[in-house]
């Protein structure tokens, strides 16, 4: 297992959330551009995926990268962690992985003063960016332990509640093609991911860059921390304050309704899906330097945000059916205008 050393001291999370009155407003647009640029420098040819990833980060969401092996899923997760500059936890999903391996557990500690006692030893989830590789290879028990921790930002062990550091983002990867020995994520688990992206193979010229070392893992070490977790946390606060017009909200409601009425969708998108879509749209608006959400934000993010949340009636094993149907639904709803 590829466990990184857990952070020795969990970040004291309560204090830095208070924004100093004299703090300069954050230029979200520039910050996002820098973050996306550093992803682009490493992960070749997936600018749009990079934008969605950063939007997920700003929207306090979790990202699931779903693709065939070897297209840079893990690399994408790692570069986000590096660029953000916070702590980084990595978990490799295996069937024998236990919830305690993820969240941390009470360990006997012996020291000369106090003797042996049980002390909470935080798991890899106590990091600003948590990369969970091969999520569907872990058992459902472990999956839900991780996702609940991510959702609630707390871990409770032995009656003690431990707060996760802020910001906290789970970037999970999974291979949808290989199904032997995997535990498919249930609808409830999938619903906890703000966005699912499928980068796919890069174009030949980018592939050449990777092979010759101009991009790819070899460049990972060159990435320096652009910002700090504290700045990301403040950015997240600012993003949450982006204005959403009622018309835009109604547009999302219409799209959700369309997924619920579509004949080929057995179960439409949930309300949580709508909330998460709005959050992502806010992040995208902020990343473009706007203080308001426009319908194009919704239309551009709906597939990534809703594609995994609909249950396709007759998918015949297609992994893209949900995304295609959501795209159809979005196209069928008229966008609001002035």
């Amino acid at each position: 297992m590829d466990f990184p050393p857990p952070p020795l001291a969990p970040a004291p999370n309560d204090a830095p959330r208070a924004v100093q009155p004299d703090a300069q407003p954050i230029d979200v647009r520039a910050l996002a551009a820098q973050l996306v640029a550093s992803i682009d420098a490493v992960v070749a040819g997936h600018h749009d995926i990079a934008e969605i990833a950063i939007a997920t980060l700003f929207a306090r969401g979790n990202l699931l990268i779903e693709d065939i092996p070897g297209v840079g899923k893990t690399l994408l997760a790692q570069v986000i962690a590096r660029a953000v500059g916070g702590s980084f936890g990595r978990i490799q999903g295996t069937p024998d992985l236990l919830p305690g391996d993820v969240t941390g557990s009470m360990m006997p500690i012996t020291d000369p003063v106090n003797g042996t006692r049980l002390e909470f030893r935080p798991g890899p989830v106590f990091a600003n960016v948590v990369v969970f590789d091969e999520l569907n290879r872990a058992t459902p028990r472990t999956q839900s332990a991780l996702l609940e921790a991510a959702e609630e930002s707390t871990v409770t062990v032995d009656g003690t509640t431990h707060r996760l550091p802020t910001p906290n983002m789970v970037v999970a990867t999974q291979n949808p093609i290989e199904i032997a020995g995997t535990y498919g994520l249930g609808e409830g688990s999938l619903d906890r991911f703000s966005a699912v992206v499928t980068p796919g193979r890069a174009a030949p010229e980018f592939e050449l860059d990777v092979l010759t070392g101009r991009r790819g893992r070899s460049m990972l070490n060159a990435i320096e921390a652009i910002t700090t977790p504290a700045v990301i946390a403040r950015t997240q606060d600012e993003v949450a304050a982006i204005y959403v017009a009622d018309a835009v909200g109604a547009y999302v409601v219409d799209i959700l309704g369309a997924t619920r009425r579509h004949p080929n969708i057995r179960l439409g998108a949930s309300t949580r899906a709508g909330v998460s879509l709005i959050s992502l749209a806010r992040a995208r608006a902020a990343m473009e330097g706007r203080t308001y959400v426009v319908p194009d934000d919704i239309a551009g993010l709906a597939v990534a945000s809703l594609g995994h949340r609909v249950l396709v009636a007759d998918s015949n094993g297609s992994t893209t059916a949900g995304r295609d149907l959501v795209a159809e639904c979005v196209a069928s709803v008229a966008a609001p205008t002035a």
Binding site: Y243, T291, V294, P295
Partner: peptide, 10 residues
Amino acid sequence: LLDRVAFDPS
């Protein structure tokens, strides 16, 4: 500009 008019309250 068109989007601002529609969706930017400020």
